[in-house]
Design a protein around this nucleic acid. Structure first.
Lengths: 153, 153
DNA sequence: GCTATACTCTATCAAAACAGTAGAGTTAAT
DNA sequence: ATTAACTCTACTGTTTTGATAGAGTATAGC
C-alpha cells in the first residue's frame, strides 16, 4: 500500500512551491537542497508535473518552476494519480484506472467489496486535501500562525 | 498505493477457507482451482500464513489447510501486514513498521501529517473487517441470506 | 510396509518497477 | 556571447514481484 519515493518527492516539491507563491519562480536546485532530493531525479518529476499542467516553468538564467493554478485548486489526489496511477489498492475497484481482475466473479467478490471501502477512505482524504492545506499544516507544525484571523479576540 | 497479487491471493484463500469452516481441511488444489491462483505460488503463501499462526495444516493424503482460529478473530489488517508490510503509504507514519524518512524535519512535515490521516483511514477499515465479515459480504453478494434472523417476521 | 497424494522447504529465474545518472540540447537574462 | 537555468531522451543498476522447479516429509488406506 505504498507511495513511491517519486510520488513523495512530487508532494514535497509542491509543498515548497506552495510555500513560495510570492516568488516569481523557484529553482530546481533550491527545492532539491531544501528537501534532500537528488536534483536530476527531481528534474524529471517537475517536468512531468509541468506537462500535466500542474506547474509552469521559466527557462534561462532566471528560470524555475511555479504552481500553474492556485494552491487551493490542486488536490493531492490528482498529483498522486498522475505520478503513481490508481489510488485504489486493487485496480478492479479503481474509478479512474479500472482493470479486470482474475477472481472468478467480480460482482460477487467479497474482497472487492472491502477494497471499495478502503479506496473510498483513501480518496476521501486525498481529494479533500489541497496544496494550500498542505502548506497550512506545515505552517501549523512550524508553530507559526496558519490563519491570523484565528487569533482575533 | 497498491496491494500486491501475493496479498490479494492470501485474502482470496482466506475467503475460501472461511467459507468452508465446516470441512476438516481444504486442499491447496481446491483453492487454486476456485480462485484461479497458480498452485505452486499459492503453496508458498499458505505456508507463510501457517508459519504466522493464521492457518493450520494437515499433511498426507487427506491433507489441506484450515483457519487456526475463528474467522471472527482474523482481521484483514493483520493478514495484509504480514504479507505486505506496512499499511501506511509512507513508512515514516507506520505504527508497526516505522522508518525514518529523508525529509528535513519529520516533526514539521506537512506531508507526514496528511499521510497520517490516510493511514488512519486505511487502518480503520482493515482492522474492523474480519474474515467472517469478508465471508458475509461474499454471501450477501451471492444473493444468499447472510443472517437468517434478518428474515424472521 | 507400500503407495499415492498431500503439504514443506529451498532455490532459482524472468520481467517489471524503482531510483537514480548522464549527456546533449534549448532558452533567456545579463 | 556567456552563463545558468530548464528539457528531452536514454540508459543502468538494484530490488521487488510473480512465479516455477525439485527434492523431501508426512499420512491415510490398503
Amino acid at each position: 500500500m505504498k507511495l513511491s519515493l517519486r510520488g513523495e518527492y512530487a508532494l514535497r516539491a509542491l509543498l515548497v512551491l506552495g510555500m513560495n507563491t510570492d516568488k516569481e519562480v523557484v529553482r530546481i536546485q533550491t527545492i532539491s537542497d531544501e528537501q534532500n532530493i537528488p536534483k536530476r531525479f527531481l528534474e524529471q518529476i517537475l517536468n512531468e508535473l509541468k506537462v500535466a499542467g500542474i506547474l509552469e516553468s521559466r527557462r534561462g538564467i532566471a528560470g524555475g518552476y511555479r504552481l500553474k493554478s492556485a494552491p487551493e485548486k490542486i488536490t493531492l489526489a490528482e498529483v498522486i494519480r498522475l505520478i503513481e496511477g490508481p489510488l485504489a489498492p486493487v485496480s478492479c475497484v479503481s474509478e479512474k484506472f479500472y482493470e479486470k481482475c482474475t477472481c472468478p466473479d467480480e460482482a460477487k467478490c467479497g474482497i472487492r467489496s472491502v477494497m471499495k471501502d478502503v479506496r473510498e477512505a483513501i480518496v476521501k482524504v486525498l481529494e479533500q486535501v489541497t496544496v494550500a492545506q498542505l502548506c497550512d499544516r506545515a505552517r501549523m507544525l512550524e508553530g507559526q500562525v496558519a490563519n491570523p484571523l484565528d487569533y482575533v479576540i
